[in-house]
């Protein structure tokens, strides 16, 4: 019985895995194409995150933190350390949640809704960011030479039924594009903000 909502956080994680994609030609203007190239060329990566959840029915936001790691082509792990230890793994088509010594599995091909998320995930993970254009209205912005932003707004159901927008903010450090902040806004007013700190941030 699968009734749980869609795993948008994963999409965020996948986007977050752009974090240290080196940009081949730093001199060039930042563009979505360059971002895609960087994405396609990236190797294994690792970062820490802090997440704040704003839930409509709760009076206060929920804080959590943990690690993100990515291994090409499609192995992605979000390991939450506090307040509870839980791990969410994407392995190919399979989503695995481990918590309290139990493991739950979910296949991304299971339903049309999940499949839509899976398509986005794969597009991001495989560096085919342009494919996202089919499902999302994409807006790329660069703020000067150092900072950039990407906004994804789903075009149609089933994604649009649950998701308002995903916003990514990043910067460029030594020819490497880093994601600093990821925001997911849900249709019900709930939102997640993930702040990512990279190993390169601490000298």
């Amino acid at each position: 019985m699968r009734y749980l909502a869609l795993p948008f956080p994963l999409l965020a994680c996948a986007l977050a895995s752009l974090l240290f994609s080196p940009l081949a030609e730093a001199a060039q203007e930042l563009s979505i194409e360059r971002l895609a190239q960087a994405l396609a060329a990236r190797g294994p990566s690792h970062a820490e995150y802090q997440q704040t959840r704003y839930l409509d029915m709760l009076d206060a936001p929920l804080e959590s933190r943990g690690h993100l790691s990515y291994r090409p082509p499609d192995h992605l792990v979000q390991e939450q350390i506090a307040p509870t230890r839980q791990t969410l793994t994407l392995d190919g088509d399979e989503l695995i949640l481990q918590a309290d010594g139990r493991t739950r599995r979910l296949n991304l091909a299971e339903s049309p809704e999940l499949a839509a998320v899976a398509t986005s995930l794969r597009a991001v993970l495989n560096g085919q960011i342009e494919r996202l254009g089919a499902d999302y209205e994409m807006t790329f912005r660069s703020f000067g030479e150092q900072e950039w932003g990407l906004e994804l707004v789903p075009r149609s159901d089933p994604l649009a039924a649950h998701l308002d927008r995903i916003t990514v903010r990043g910067r460029l450090v030594d020819d490497v594009a880093l994601v600093d902040r990821l925001t997911i806004e849900r249709d019900n007013g709930n939102a997640n903000v993930m702040r990512i700190s990279h190993p390169t941030d601490t000298p």
């Binding site: 909502a5 956080p9 959840r53 029915m57 979000q78 509870t84 949640l97 019900n188």
Partner: peptide
């Protein structure tokens, strides 16, 4: 239940919380 909401899986359970804050549905499934 609030702890569960605050997990990587949390968003997927957020819709249930207001009517099922004691987490019975999760037990059944």
């Amino acid at each position: 239940s609030i702890q569960r909401l605050n997990s990587p899986w949390g968003d997927m359970m957020a819709d249930l919380f207001p009517r099922d804050p004691t987490g019975e549905m999760l037990q059944l499934l």
